[in-house]
Simulated assay, not measured.
Amino acid sequence: MKSNCLHLAIPAGDLATAKIFYCDILGCKTGNSEDGRWVDIDFWGNELTLHQSEEKLPNVRHKVDMGEVAVPHFGIHLPEDEFQALKGRIKAAGLEYLDKPYRRFVGGDYEQETFFIEDPNGNVLEMKTMVNPELMFK
Results as ranks from 00 to 15, higher is better:
Pro11Phe: 05
Cys5Trp: 04
Lys91Asn: 12
Gln112Val: 05
Glu34Pro: 00
Arg89Pro: 07
Trp38Tyr: 11
Glu134Ser: 13
Glu118His: 09
Asn4Ile: 04
Asp40Pro: 12
Val131Thr: 10
Pro58Gly: 07
Asp99Arg: 15
Gly88Lys: 02
Gly122Lys: 12
Met130Tyr: 13
Asp35Phe: 07
Met136Phe: 14
Thr49Gly: 02
Asp42Met: 03
Met130Cys: 08
His7Leu: 07
Asn4Asp: 14
Ile90Ser: 04
Leu125Glu: 05
Glu55Asn: 14
Leu98Ala: 13
Met1Leu: 14
Lys128Ala: 09
Cys28Phe: 07
Met1Gly: 15
Asp81Thr: 09
Asp109His: 10
Trp44His: 11
Ile20Tyr: 09
Ile117Met: 01
Leu95Pro: 12
Thr49Met: 14
Cys5Gly: 02
Glu68Cys: 10
Lys19Asn: 07
Asn32Thr: 08
Val69Pro: 04
Ser53Ala: 15
Ser33Lys: 11
Lys63Phe: 09
His51Ala: 07
Leu125Trp: 00
Ile20Arg: 09
Glu111Cys: 08
Glu55Gln: 14
Leu125Asp: 06
Gly94Trp: 10
Gly27Met: 01
Leu57Trp: 07
Tyr102Ile: 15
Glu96Pro: 04
Met136Asp: 08
Trp38Glu: 04
Pro58Trp: 09
Gly67Ile: 02
Thr30Pro: 08
Lys63Val: 13
Cys5Asn: 13
Asn32Asp: 11
Val131Cys: 05
Asn123Lys: 00
Asp81Leu: 09
Pro58Ile: 08
Phe115Met: 02
